[in-house]
Design a protein around this nucleic acid. Structure first.
Lengths: 196, 196
DNA sequence: ATCATAAGCGGACTTTACCCCGCTTAAATT
DNA sequence: AATTTAAGCGGGGTAAAGTCCGCTTATGAT
């Protein structure tokens, strides 16, 4: 056997992971994310609690995993979908489209995002967020008159996702009006930063 | 008796609140914020657990209260201290100074901030954050070429505080280098948005 | 096919935030 | 000073996250 990474995931483990994610989706649908407990999930999936924790580490980890799957789909659209989100449009237009699509995405998944953000979730964490990388890439093409693109990317990412995180502290739903305001604001912000 | 608000806080309750905050400060100093438990705090303060919850609602509430006290001091400096933070300097310079001071503040209090942010803490929530108001005020004076100052203020607030919140998800300390980068980035961002 | 072994599994156990409710007491009223 | 009453208090009780460790089983090697 070649000596690749530690070892691939065992077949039963992979099956259980998928099953747990599916059951979690159902329970979120039925009960709302905040009512999903580890005991409940394990019971309903017909597995032990230990298994659930082994697979996902923490409660937040489950939601992070769910979000990750959605995220992949979203990034796919951003990387290779049709313009203006995908390649083919001007970088600035792509940036604007990205922000607006992202705002919609976050509104749609707010409950899961909220559940996924929690102190002490042992996320691999090396990953500096696909959103940030994507923004950084587009900024590099747009060449705004700013010294440190790295930091600007971080700040723009925060300007986009931060309001949602800030919103997480205070409970309650997020209405379409807020999403629209944020989209418009994002456009202004990009215009202001990137146009000479 | 005149019919003002619900009723002022009873004297013993006020005394207990102050005492608890003081003990909490000591325990944070000694053990670190994440090791402070409600039982431990109650024990050490010589009070019942129920009392602690009655005063602060949730665990996060305690840290929020501590932060609030520090916040008042900070805002005092911003509102009526010496320039460039306080009044007397140009709005844009005050904005820049504010961001830099704020970054330092957040780095210094990161552990407490982390403990204060938690799902379901019953913050009055009407309060739209002093930072945001302050930024909004300075923006109104600086008059950047942007349509919706309300939203811009929200986004800038997020650009400032968001990175810390994002950072909360991943454990670990925050070094001075990061704080410096953020300060510099903030300056660039304000320059880009506010200068014609 | 059999074996060895590391990964997976389960569920009892521990810890901690948060709730409940009967007793106590500050403080306004007479 | 005595009375009233709503707020405060305490600590046992509950629920849910996360840990542990002995048993089971998939999987690759012989």
């Amino acid at each position: 056997m070649p000596f690749g990474r530690p070892r691939p995931e065992r077949a039963d483990a992979a099956r259980n992971r998928e099953h747990l994610l599916q059951v979690a989706r159902e329970m979120i649908e039925e009960l709302g994310a905040e009512k999903v407990t580890m005991d409940g999930l394990a019971d309903r999936a017909g597995l032990g609690k230990g298994t659930v924790f082994r697979r996902f580490g923490t409660r937040a980890g489950i939601f992070a995993a769910l979000l990750d799957a959605e995220e992949k789909i979203f990034q796919q659209a951003a990387m290779s979908g049709p313009p203006p989100l995908g390649p083919g449009a001007a970088p600035i237009d792509r940036l604007i489209a990205y922000g607006q699509a992202r705002a919609t995405f976050l509104v749609d998944h707010l409950a899961v995002v909220r559940a996924a953000v929690d102190r002490n979730n042992p996320i691999p964490s090396g990953v500096p967020s696909l959103t940030r990388l994507h923004i950084h890439m587009l900024l590099a093409q747009a060449r705004p008159p700013v010294a440190d693109l790295e930091v600007l990317a971080l700040q723009l990412t925060a300007a986009l996702e931060g309001p949602f995180l800030l919103y997480l502290s205070t409970a309650g739903p997020l209405d379409d009006a807020a999403a629209t305001a944020l989209s418009d604001g994002w456009k202004s912000l990009i215009d202001a930063v990137c146009r000479p």
